[in-house]
Structures are given as structure tokens and as C-alpha cells.
């Protein structure tokens, strides 16, 4: 999997370097470092070092590669998916409602044995956060795109 991560990084830095060469000048008209100076140095260095790391990874034998552990991935992928869902809900229903839904669902999935405690936490934590951010600190809470009839 590390190889895949390195390939993704390599693709990203190749594109970054392409833009640095195609759109950004290396030097200004007066001969000083231009807007493309740093990006080109960074891009070329990154391509070189990622390729080096990738070759090292490919040289490693199968026994040195990390073993896939589906059980370890299960919960982290689920939490990531729930977090993405939360990001979408924040835009749609605003900070308070999205947080109630996210916490309710996530706690029900992760902490199945204590439904009452989960329910209480799903209400109390967003309430506390709302009071802290909106009332005490006067900070911005995400506004709702669609208001729920509650």
C-alpha cells in the first residue's frame, strides 16, 4: 500500500512541476528569482526523491512488505466514511443538527452496547459545543442550507 501512496504522490508532484514549468517564470525580467523559481526547485527535488523511495520500495522483498490487516482497516475506513458524511451534513443542515446526526450514528456504530449513553451524548455534546462556540465565544457555526422543521 505504501507503493500506491508513493505513486499517488508522484503523480501529484509531476503535475505540480508541469504547472511550474508551463505557467510560472523561473526569473523575473530583472533577472531575479521569479514566481516559478521555488516551485521548480521543489517539484524537481520531489520527483527525484519520490522516485528514489519508490525504487527502494519495489526492491524490498514480499516478506518485507507490510501485511494487510483487514480488521484494522475496517473501523478506520468506517470512521473516515462517517467523517465525510459529517462534512456533507454540515453544509446541508448546519453545525448543530449535523453534529447530532453524526454523533448519534457514529456512537451507535462504535459503542453498540450503551444506546442510552449514546443518545445522551449525541444531544449533550452538540449542545455544549453550540453554547461554547455560538454563545460564549461568539464564533461562527456552519449555517444550514436546508432548515429542518424542528
Amino acid at each position: 500500500m505504501r507503493r500506491v501512496f508513493l505513486v499517488v504522490l508522484l503523480a501529484g508532484v509531476i503535475y505540480y512541476t508541469y504547472v511550474a514549468f508551463a505557467d510560472l517564470n523561473f526569473l523575473t525580467r530583472t533577472g531575479r528569482p521569479g514566481p516559478g523559481f521555488f516551485p521548480r526547485v521543489i517539484g524537481i527535488s520531489a520527483i527525484f526523491i519520490i522516485l528514489w523511495a519508490l525504487i527502494d520500495e519495489l526492491r524490498k522483498g514480499a516478506d518485507e512488505q507490510e501485511k494487510a490487516n483487514p480488521e484494522a482497516w475496517q473501523d478506520v475506513v468506517m470512521l473516515m466514511a462517517l467523517a465525510i458524511g459529517y462534512a456533507v451534513l454540515l453544509r446541508m443542515f448546519g453545525g448543530f443538527v449535523a453534529t447530532v446526526i453524526f454523533l448519534g450514528v457514529t456512537l451507535m456504530v462504535l459503542n453498540r452496547t450503551q444506546p442510552l449513553k449514546n443518545f445522551a451524548l449525541a444531544i449533550l455534546i452538540p449542545g455544549g459545543v453550540y453554547l461554547l462556540f455560538d454563545r460564549v465565544l461568539n464564533a461562527n457555526m456552519p449555517p444550514a442550507l436546508y432548515d429542518l422543521p424542528i
Partner: peptide, 10 residues
């Protein structure tokens, strides 16, 4: 964990 996600996002 879920509470940390909430604090990070908000």
C-alpha cells in the same frame, strides 16, 4: 473519537 471529529470540524 467522534467528539474529536466534531471539535476539529467546528
Amino acid at each position: 473519537g467522534p467528539s474529536v471529529v466534531v471539535v476539529c470540524a467546528l
